[in-house]
Amino acid sequence: MLTSHRTPVTGRRVQLMATCLCDAFHDDVAAAAVEVLEHLGCEVAFPEGQTCCGQPAFNAGDWPASRRVVRHAVRTFASPDPIVVPSGSCAAMLFHGALLEFEKEADLGEVDALGRRTWELGDFIVNGLGVRSWPGRFDAVVALHRSCHTRGTGSSDAAALLLGSIAGVRLVELGEGEQCCGFGGTFSVAFPHISAAMGRLKLDHVRAARPDVLVSGDMGCLMHLGGMAARQGAPVRSMHFAQVLREALRGAA
């Protein structure tokens, strides 16, 4: 339901949208995304003016504020090359959420075009570039948290396919995989009690699956779960799946 009609990928030039969370906290995830894309022969451009996808204001209901940020993204990522985002949530904001808030706006067409060339990283690798397996080695039991904003898209299956193809990786399922981790952006601060309760349930499932690493395609979920686990005094090792792909490449060397 979420995926708009996507423009097929022809060349190997891409624009990286690092996301505000990686810009502020998780720089290594964005770096891993660059290395992974370059490994695939992509020429990665990083438009310097980029900021955020506009989702915080969109979810808060302040659509005029959100549209201001989305319009900035339209200007910043003006090139027709695919925009690759190491976050299912930010990607969905651009190819689904933005269309909702621009429904009655004169520049809906430009926003729609932006959405059509926006890809979550795993979705781009598998369904955009047609890559079905990943080389190298990464010895770990991996639990993949399928983040909510990848529902109805190819992202989670793509991440599972790539992770499962890496030598040394053993994928384990998380119980109640359909349940949200409780992050939800501003939800995590406006509903701190419910958000934390949801996080504890998710962490129970993570610990029950006994993975070496908890992996997701969204740093929002991992920041919330990792931050909770740390606060509980029982940290959970977590990685973005781009970091796993990069570590696998290093493992091959």
Binding site: H149, E178, Q179, F183, G185, F191, S195, M198
Partner: peptide
Amino acid sequence: PKASSLCGA
């Protein structure tokens, strides 16, 4: 309508 993480379940 605010009482949702917008998880889509």
